[in-house]
Design a protein around this nucleic acid. Structure first.
Lengths: 241, 241
DNA sequence: CGTGAACTTGAGACTATTCAAAGAGTGTGG
DNA sequence: CCACACTCTTTGAATAGTCTCAAGTTCACG
């Protein structure tokens, strides 16, 4: 659970989360990409991504897959209660992920005793929800090139939340998955990435990206970071301004 | 506040909300379309739409307006706290709306005393959030024709929540606004509506629509209703199935 | 009945999808 | 180490979807 602890410590002074360790009921080492239904009798299970990458998705009426959000190391993959969801949701864990399975009821009991921990966890999930909201705006209104930029910034933010702020941003998603996330197709994603590269906006290596002038990009797109290790109080006041 | 009461009574047996009436600090009669910032010193104000129509929107980096959600009679327009928002939000009240302005702190005090009322209000807003989530999926992934269908079903759902289930669905939004809602342009909205009409999927009068075979449309799109006056317990169990 | 806002229509440009085929990368077993 | 199978990515060409600009038309309302 040390990756989760790292996330929370950047939000609030959480001493330790050893109490959460007692909530662990299982531990998976994911060999190949594996999708699990989030609400099929597993409603009282909480998935914490110890390492690796995951995303949640739903299948639309036409059979199209829509990816809603993604999770880096330390993230909780199904914090929102499944019965709250509008559509049957699934979580896909990418190959070579480490997943801790926690018992929801036990976690609730721990949080009831440790208000500070509860606040930090809640804050973490609220920020995630705000980031989704920011992205969704762009995905609905803007063309694929802009949507892709937002996705790259969001990925950077997610890895920053996990404490992995590097120059080369890992890309754990296939272009098919990127398409299902931004509402496009794998072919068009491929072409759009190619034009961004040609315009020297990004550079590519195998499975990783580098964004040239990421600060300027954020400014141009009015992109707001949610996990840049800013204390809670500052975030609140920044939002009020 | 009788329209709000009507909404809540369909969700749970709420006796009366006269206590909320004491929270009213102002009352507006909106002559012409009027936009107000939701978080500019008015953070402790709650807007209840006694009658009329409203929507909230934000301006994206390029100046494009994105409409996030809309509100029919009896709806609370800014339940989610403004400082939680990712972008400066605004609420636009359409002409001929009646708005009640409530004091948030007083409302909180009332809800602290009346747990049943608090639960009903919370349930109402949760359902709204789920409906937004369902719509957003479609808007990101599907072409304009499908997006428009979802919007019409959502509008129908919103008026049903207000207790106004009629055959002819009022359309309080201009085509420009519909475009800003589904991520399209007014011109394309005009053409898309025209094709739906030509295919006999909808009929039109001035400022109102009729959806032919709305049940079948819901089934085809796997559309889930959130305000069809189904009791809470049934909704929960339906979600679990 | 005039006025302004909302809606419609057309033409051309741009954006995105589909289908199909070829190319590149990864891991496995010989 | 190579060969193979597999998935992912790239590319091309045709088609479909959407945007922009601009000019009309309709409609609501004073």
């Amino acid at each position: 659970l040390h990756t989760l602890l790292g996330r929370l410590q950047s939000l609030a002074p959480v001493a330790d989360i050893s109490a959460l360790a007692n909530c662990i009921v299982d531990r998976w080492t994911v060999e190949r990409d594996q999708a699990v239904p989030s609400a099929r009798g597993l409603a009282n299970r909480l998935y914490v991504l110890e390492d690796g990458f995951a995303f949640d998705f739903a299948l639309l009426a036409g059979g199209k897959r829509h990816i809603f959000d993604f999770y880096g190391p330390g993230a909780i993959c199904n914090w929102t209660r499944p019965e709250r969801e509008d559509t049957p949701e699934h979580i896909l864990f990418k190959a070579r992920s480490e997943v801790l399975v926690l018992d929801r009821d036990r976690v609730s009991a721990v949080l009831a005793r440790d208000g500070r921990l509860a606040a930090a966890l809640h804050e973490h999930e609220v920020r995630r929800a705000m980031r989704v909201s920011q992205r969704v705006r762009a995905l609905i209104s803007l063309p694929a090139r802009e949507s892709l930029r937002i996705l790259l910034l969001d990925l950077d933010d997610e890895f920053a939340a996990a404490g992995e702020e590097r120059e080369w941003l890992p890309m754990p998603l296939t272009q098919e998955e990127i398409g299902d996330l931004i509402g496009s197709t794998s072919v068009h994603v491929s072409r759009t990435i190619a034009t961004l590269e040609k315009d020297r906006e990004i550079e590519r290596r195998t499975n990783s990206f580098r964004i040239n002038g990421i600060e300027g990009l954020r400014a141009r797109m009015s992109y707001r970071r949610f996990f840049d290790h800013m204390p809670m109080a500052d975030l609140r006041s920044a939002a009020m301004g």
